[in-house]
């Protein structure tokens, strides 16, 4: 039994948890799957490593919606914990019903990046090392640097450890250098508006409207999303570039001051669209204008749900 499994077992019984949400080994090499454990003996299947790409806060929210009376423990990377904390600040979750178990995160794999690094070849066996991942397939073996396959969000992550937790298993990890946080946005800001338009047009024209980005996002919890409104319909569901852009821009704006930069959206995207650029741009704006970073403090009001009499209103004409 690993250290993680052993410690979680103790927490499970000490806290009398009804459910533990974590990760288990997936059916494919280098893929984990969300795991829902209701019996202590099943905790042996828990894992945590760079394959744990999902944001479990989404599943936590769904479980609470299904049955609000459960006491749930959750394995949390920095971003899972931030999403939970932010959802608590938005009164979507109750702090006392959730046991946050922090785990040290060194970033998670982007399946799209991995697929492209391997040029479409699939993995049958793998070894995860400190700096590299060795992938083996039917007729190849390739050692890949972790940084080549980690999610872009992870490479710029400022909060790899849960900012608030009930337990923490392992040693806390170091965040990326601060200048990395908005590196992608900074690059795009250097472009001319025409170049930026071309860039976004190229990226979003790949969209197949599968809504994986929205459905993977813990902050997208509306009972009725604006894109599902059809009386009247606000936005088309097809591949018209205007409809696609409206969807992505509206989603980014709905996430203002709420996005915790987990990157679950971009890792869920089957087309490898750069969703990060737009969402990070909004995050940067909120940070600069309001000095607010989502998901750090359960007690603090979200930026767009707060009011200050001494707000300098500098961007209001």
């Amino acid at each position: 039994m690993s250290n993680l499994q052993e410690k979680v077992k103790k927490i499970f019984s000490d806290e009398k948890l009804d459910l533990l949400i974590g990760f288990e080994k997936g059916t494919l090499p280098l893929r984990a799957a969300p795991s829902f454990v209701r019996k202590s003996e099943d905790l042996d299947k828990l894992i945590f490593d760079i394959t744990c790409q999902n944001n479990l806060a989404k599943h936590l929210l769904n479980e609470i919606k299904r049955n609000p009376d459960q006491k749930i423990g959750i394995i949390a990377k920095g971003c899972d914990a931030r999403a939970i904390i932010h959802l608590i600040s938005e009164k979507q979750l109750e702090r006392k019903k959730i046991i946050i178990i922090g785990v040290p995160c060194c970033g998670v794999i982007s399946p799209f990046k991995l697929k492209n690094v391997l040029n479409g070849r699939e993995v049958t066996d793998c070894t995860i090392n400190n700096e590299t991942v060795i992938c083996k397939g039917k007729d190849y073996e390739k050692e890949i640097s972790r940084t080549d396959i980690l999610s872009g969000y992870c490479l710029s992550c400022q909060y790899p450890n849960a900012p608030e937790y009930d337990y923490f298993i392992g040693e806390q990890t170091k965040p990326a250098p601060p200048e990395k946080q908005f590196e992608k946005v900074d690059e795009l800001e250097k472009m001319t508006p025409d170049e930026r338009w071309e860039y976004f047009k190229k990226e979003y024209s790949k969209c197949i409207r599968c809504n994986a980005c929205r459905n993977a996002c813990p902050m997208c919890f509306c009972d009725e999303c604006f894109i599902d409104r059809n009386k009247p319909r606000w936005v088309g569901k097809g591949n018209d570039i205007s409809d696609i852009m409206i969807y992505h821009i509206m989603r980014a704006i709905h996430l203002a001051g709420r996005c915790t930069s987990c990157g679950a959206c971009s890792r869920a995207c089957p087309m490898g669209i750069d969703i990060e650029a737009l969402n990070k741009r909004v995050t940067k704006e909120i940070k600069e204008r309001f000095g607010f970073t989502a998901g750090l403090d359960c007690e603090k009001n979200p930026a767009l749900a707060d009011y200050k009499t001494d707000d300098n209103d500098e961007f209001i004409m």
Binding site: P34, F36, R209, C210, A212, A268, P270
Partner: peptide, 16 residues
């Protein structure tokens, strides 16, 4: 139930 707990309800499977 197990399957539905995991499923995000997106359209990746159907559209691929």
């Amino acid at each position: 139930e197990e399957l539905a707990a995991k499923c995000l309800g997106c359209g990746v499977c159907a559209f691929s």
